[in-house]
Simulated scan of single mutants.
Amino acid sequence: MIHFIKKLRASNLEILENPLSTQIYGDYDVVMDLLKTEIKEVFELMDKGLLLIKVVKSDRHDYKPHF
Rank of each mutant, 00 (worst) to 15 (best):
I2G: 14
I2M: 10
I2P: 02
F4W: 06
F4E: 07
F4L: 07
I5L: 11
I5P: 06
I5Q: 02
K6S: 06
L8K: 01
L8N: 00
R9M: 06
R9L: 10
A10Y: 01
A10K: 12
S11G: 07
S11F: 03
N12G: 15
N12S: 08
L13K: 01
E14W: 04
I15H: 02
N18P: 05
P19N: 05
L20F: 15
S21Y: 00
Q23C: 04
Q23P: 02
D27W: 05
D27E: 12
Y28A: 09
D29R: 00
V30S: 08
V31W: 00
V31T: 03
M32I: 15
M32E: 09
K36C: 08
T37G: 06
T37L: 15
T37A: 10
K40E: 14
V42H: 07
V42L: 09
V42Q: 12
V42Y: 11
F43C: 13
E44M: 11
E44A: 11
E44W: 09
L45A: 09
M46E: 15
K48E: 15
K48T: 10
G49A: 03
L50G: 04
L50Y: 05
L51F: 09
L51H: 06
L51D: 01
L52T: 13
L52E: 13
V55N: 06
V56A: 04
V56T: 02
K57Y: 13
S58R: 14
S58C: 04
S58A: 11
D59F: 06
R60F: 12
D62P: 01
Y63P: 04
Y63G: 04
Y63T: 07
K64Y: 05
K64P: 02
H66G: 04
F67L: 15
